[in-house]
């Protein structure tokens, strides 16, 4: 900014050098890895949980109430869902709500950056982190505990994608409806525990009493858990489960989009 030179006439057409979306993604990636809590709970904790179970001999024995699976085998899909729940409910909402609360989105919206690209980067990063965690969990399960890889890979992948979009839509809706970071955290916690229950963190869905399993199947993570179990066993997941998951995803995404406020 020298005093002598006249400012160049601004070009009103987009210049190829400006890549606001990419710049935002790079910055948000740096920020993601600067939150050690999020990185640990999303990317390391679920696999660690599986590893610990694998070291307990009783956990590796086949059990009748788990349909002939060992506890470790039953917990692989649970750990995969756990990482998504951590990403969507614990890690992401405070970030997005905080950005709005502290005027970061507002400041960004005075630049050529579309604020949607900040949100897009957040959703994309958390999705990538939990999918990475899923791969890590499957790999560690296979290598350390000898758990077979999913028999129906495509069905497994489809369920994973639906589940990750669903949980991030839920997280986005929480951010949309919570005026402050504190409220977002409180709402997240109250959705977090039922989600963990439905995903089978406390008790795999195979072990739940019948009535409870029927109810849990209607929740997104219960449906996802059932679909993942079926795909693990080598079957194409039931359309009922995929349908429940898809419907939740649709409703949650639409609501998040409808109610999100930028300031």
């Amino acid at each position: 900014m020298s005093a002598a030179t006249a400012p160049p006439a601004p070009s009103l057409t987009a210049n190829v050098r400006a890549r606001p979306g990419r710049a935002v993604l790079r910055a948000e990636t740096l920020l993601f890895f600067r939150e050690p809590g999020s990185v640990f709970w999303v990317m390391a904790f679920p696999t660690l949980l599986l590893l610990i179970l694998g070291f307990i001999p009783a956990m590796t024995e086949a059990k009748d109430e788990l349909g002939g699976l060992s506890t470790v085998e039953a917990y692989v899909p649970v750990a995969v869902l756990l990482s998504m729940i951590m990403a969507g409910l614990m890690a992401m909402p405070p970030v997005i709500t905080g950005y709005r609360e502290r005027g970061i989105l507002r400041r960004m919206s005075t630049t050529p950056v579309r604020p949607t690209s900040v949100l897009g980067a957040q959703v994309g990063l958390h999705a990538a982190a939990s999918l990475f965690s899923a791969v890590l969990t499957l790999a560690v399960g296979r290598i350390v505990s000898g758990v077979a890889l999913p028999g129906q890979i495509l069905g497994y992948l489809l369920t994973l994608l639906l589940a990750v979009v669903c949980v991030l839509a839920l997280g986005a809706l929480i951010s949309a409806l919570s005026p402050t970071t504190k409220i977002a955290q409180a709402v997240s916690i109250s959705v977090f525990f039922p989600s963990m229950l439905a995903a089978g963190v406390y008790m795999p869905i195979q072990q739940m009493p019948d009535v409870m399993a029927r109810i849990v199947e209607l929740l997104p993570f219960g449906a996802a858990a059932q679909a993942l179990n079926q795909a693990t066993a080598g079957d194409w997941p039931d359309w009922n489960h995929l349908g429940v998951l898809a419907l939740w995803t649709l409703v949650l995404s639409a609501s998040a989009t409808r109610w999100f406020r930028w300031q």
């Binding site: 070009s11 050098r17 630049t111």
Partner: peptide
Amino acid sequence: AEVLRLYTDCYPDPA
């Protein structure tokens, strides 16, 4: 520096 780069990269003809 990261903030300045982020905002710089947002504009077609930055300072």
